[in-house]
Design a binder for these strands. Structure first.
Lengths: 338, 338
DNA sequence: AGATTGACACCTAGGTGGTAATGT
DNA sequence: ACATTACCACCTAGGTGTCAATCT
């Protein structure tokens, strides 16, 4: 099923036309900077109403933060050299995607993680993301067919290490070599616009792995590196629906979904927030079994081991390495986010 | 999503073109006899090598039984009156389906159930079939797109009752009114022929319900009625792949998959075979926990309640009602059939 | 009396982080 | 040192038939 360098998790449907189209989307962007002007980048509409939006700014900081918590600035995005085929001017969108927009679901939870410096576990067998990428779509043509793709681009070309003494990430060198990029195709693809817009689109089948030889179609990432997920909405032209010279897809980036891939959690507050918000980790929660599932805002007594001064007490300054947790991160409890 | 009387479990993919095509397949056959000559009926190729095959005969008895067990003859198929649009002569198949064939997986298990008189539970919330319909396909064009559909046709127009005193099914009157027919679309649809042929195609998401008002897209059946599942392989023409005047689909019927819908099992030997072969029912098996999963052929000591002469000892003659279990049905133990 | 429903114990299947062992 | 792995207890989620209660 690999006709080019791009590897997909699956491509049962629609045969090879779809695969070729998805490959084109991937290739178009493969050698571009993380956020080239070509991209039709749209901000998380649920959390930000800014009409003018700078893509590069979006990745370099969280531009739309409605909390007072200090914004953890990730390192500036890498700009690669090979700008092949970058039409720097505005492009004409295919009508099927011209009015398309997407909003990130659970953006408050994502922001809570982002403020601490999101970490995502990668394992040999593949690990789901938590939170999972979920989006609400609008502006699609109900009767037109679309693919929904997710891929991951490096946020920089560095390798990181977590300094426990300062509870901060520090640069540990240049990035390791990258594996051939992989793209996750939403299992419903292709589907009509009406299907995608009917309800939340969830990428909860997507799995991350650090196994460079992975055979299951999972997304291959380097541990201790930073990544930015991207959502691509790709129009699939039917008979006579092609419009040469137009761009048939749009790419959405939600900066608060950027993360560091790890094989074990480094920042203990990330661990705690995962435990508090992921229903599958309920067994690790520090609360009585009866009233354990508290609604956001509730607060309960600890049950498991009293972890006293476990690592450093959570009070450290952001260092050059990248985002740190905010000293006064939310005490909000998340219950069921799945 | 309902543009005609046909209801589908889902139709996210490929938009309305696919839905229209599937509806056509359904409508073509909706008012036909159970097995009209139009159908491209193919026998379970795994269990039968007969080259000449009579569709009507296939439903009226199990024509390809390689066991000595007495064949439980189901009631003869109903022949409806409204033979609209029945080209009684042979039709020209579209090249994309001309060489298509399908074989039933787990046909030995299906036959064991069939010999006892298969029962399938229907519930308000929807119940999976066990065994699930699974088939291996061949002869598709690897790069062409296909839909895989399953629907259910009544095997007769009768209502049944199980006579416990004689351990046999008896006719209890004329069939109840039928709900609008529903079609289960395999979730992978549409997919390339290569995808369908790569591995076993399993319809384990299909659920049966007796809730006439079901709005989960499940298959609606009448309890205490007999049904025959059908598998439709539908070619989905791409640009310029249409061939007017040809039939773009084939229908496969495996007579050993016919069953009686029930809300609770009637024949106790059916219950026992389900418990012995369905891994989810392992908790009800009559064997020691350690060596409980015996390979087919093994035999173990009972663990749960000794059920002595539970109903009548299993020895009854087939009555006019339909299939009965064979008095000497297999003692083979089935382990994991999922 | 027969058919249906709902609560239940008991499974499969798989997603959590913890922890100790193992690499490197 | 640090990163990774394998295994584990503990969850969620949902598929089984049983049984008692209820419906018709």
């Amino acid at each position: 099923m690999e006709t080019s360098g791009v590897v997909f998790n699956q491509f049962p449907r629609g045969g090879f036309q779809l695969q070729a189209l998805a490959e084109r989307v991937s290739r178009d962007q493969e050698h571009l900077p993380v956020l080239p002007p070509l991209y039709n980048v749209v901000r998380d509409t649920a959390s930000c109403s800014r009409s003018t939006y700078s893509p590069l700014q979006a990745l370099s900081e969280s531009t739309c933060r409605d909390h007072a918590a200090p914004a953890p600035p990730p390192p500036p995005p890498r700009v690669q050299e090979s700008h092949s085929q970058v039409p720097n001017q505005s492009v004409t969108l295919h009508p099927a995607v011209a009015r398309c927009s997407a909003s990130l679901e659970l953006s408050a939870l994502w922001r809570s993680f982002h403020e601490l410096g999101t970490e995502m576990i990668v394992t040999k067998a593949g690990r789901r993301m938590f939170p999972a990428l979920q989006a609400r779509l609008s502006g699609l043509l109900p009767n037109a067919d679309y693919l929904l793709l997710v891929d991951f681009v490096p946020l920089d070309d560095k390798r990181y290490r977590y300094a426990f003494h300062s509870s901060s990430w520090v640069v540990a060198g240049k990035a390791d070599p990258v594996s051939p990029p992989r793209i996750h195709v939403h299992p419903d693809s292709p589907a009509a616009g009406a299907h995608w817009m009917r309800q939340l689109v969830s990428f909860d089948k997507l799995k991350l792995t650090n196994n460079q030889l992975d055979d299951n179609g999972h997304i291959i990432l380097n541990s201790m590196h930073r990544y930015q997920p991207r959502l691509h909405v790709v129009f699939l032209p039917g008979d006579g629906q092609s419009a040469p010279g137009t761009v048939p897809y749009r790419t959405f980036i939600f900066p608060e979904t950027g993360f560091t891939a790890v094989t074990a959690y480094q920042n203990h507050r990330i661990t705690q927030l995962k435990i508090a918000s992921n229903p599958f980790a309920k067994g690790f929660r520090d609360c009585d079994p009866d009233d354990c599932p508290p609604e956001p805002g509730g607060q309960r007594a600890p049950r498991r081991r009293e972890e006293g001064p476990l690592a450093q007490p959570y009070a450290a300054e952001p260092s050059a390495g990248g985002p740190l947790y905010a000293p006064h991160a939310h005490t909000v409890r998340y219950d069921t986010y799945i």
